[in-house]
Design a protein around this nucleic acid. Structure first.
Lengths: 226, 226
DNA sequence: GTCTATAAACGGATAGAC
DNA sequence: GTCTATCCGTTTATAGAC
């Protein structure tokens, strides 16, 4: 890996860990092993280097999301796989983190990759939800755009909860809760097989929207008991 | 308001806007109108002043939440009121923001109020959900702890989406999506009479590729038969 | 209680030698 | 391309006068 590359990668790490304000050129140089001169030879300054790092992080994060969202399985299954994917919850989201940084959001060039990432991700999930609706896997009453926004928010908020609690479990709990809510809108046949899924679905019920069978075992989709 | 008080309030604002790393004693002094000497007379240094500010922000934020959560109405109704409460979505959460700050989370004293706030809030919501289950308002199949975590995450993630999009509407959309999922687990009689969850903001959200079918907007969130 | 003076380290960068 | 030297402002205080 050449110097330029090491500078970008080190900046990506530092932006992830400490944000833009918390990341100094000196720290970047130390982590990358590059000198003052090298850094300013390859980049015009901190914002320029940060732009390269942010753009790459956004692209990589998008690629990792697409690996799950574009993978095999039904739309709802792929969404669940994405949400549950192994994440370093305590480290937070390398892209979402930047949204909290006023200096990043104040600079249109630095901000663009962040905005685009979330626009893409929300749209991608909305498309999958719509696909699931069309195929009959999901309740046609679902609003794809709003549901997608809620799911993306759960992921981002899950990171907040995990960091606040000092435990990655808080992330898993939030995602589990959201998936349980979502999967209640899926056809029983489309739900994952492993958990003891016997929840009565509206379509499985004879009639009457209020007929909530009070079965205590009717818990949708849980990863671990609690 | 005396000098000590102005120092705390100015620090609260700055922590909210710029985070801990982004907040310098100098900026605090300028905003509060206090001099160097005053600040170090009333507080031992930046961490000490930050602690006072963080503790107060956590307490105040909790109080504002309790105002909705402990208000009138059914459990689900109070939760909906809390989630939809007018928020300055673009400013983010004064408490949640701190969870992204490594220097805050690294200091147990600064971190404690943040952790406690989220523990309390999640527990409070879980209690309400449980109450709703017991009263028959909510589906007994709901997992209160996981659902509560998901809802808190939606709020926190909603702030991220709003900031990323540069629009408070993104927050509203995420909350709407989450409430729609939740309310599908409520007895119809317990659901809001007026149309689903849609905030009355001046600018209507752009109808995505997946605008809802032209059915009556007042129809139940969850389809009854299929 | 509040003010000014002083200071060592850091932040963010430029200039020029090699 | 990389290194060292230099620069000016900021950060985060401490000391002591008023």
């Amino acid at each position: 890996m050449d110097t330029r590359e090491r500078l970008i990668e080190s900046t990506r790490e530092l932006l992830w860990e400490r944000g833009y304000v918390g990341t100094s050129p000196k720290a970047i140089q130390e982590r990358s092993g590059a000198g003052q001169g090298s850094m300013y030879h390859h980049f015009h300054g901190k914002p320029d280097l940060a732009l390269a790092a942010i753009a790459r992080s956004a692209e990589e994060t998008r690629g990792r999301a697409e690996a799950e969202l574009g993978g095999p399985g039904s739309p709802a299954g792929r969404i669940a796989a994405y949400l549950r994917r192994e994440r370093e919850a305590l480290r937070g989201c390398p892209v979402g983190r930047l949204s909290q940084d006023p200096d990043v959001m104040a600079d249109p060039r630095l901000r663009a990759p962040v905005e685009e990432y979330f626009t893409w991700l929300t749209g991608r999930l909305a498309g999958l939800l719509d696909e699931g609706r069309a195929s009959g896997e999901l309740d046609p009453g679902l609003d794809p755009a709003a549901t997608a926004a809620a799911l993306v928010a759960v992921v981002q908020g899950g990171y907040v909860l995990a960091r606040a609690a000092g435990s990655a479990e808080a992330y898993a709990r939030a995602v589990d809760g959201a998936l349980a809510l979502l999967m209640a809108h899926a056809r029983p046949s489309a739900r994952p097989a492993h958990p003891p899924v016997r929840t009565a679905h509206p379509s499985a019920r004879p009639a009457g929207p209020s007929a909530r069978p009070a079965g205590p075992s009717a818990r949708p989709l849980r990863k671990e008991g609690r």
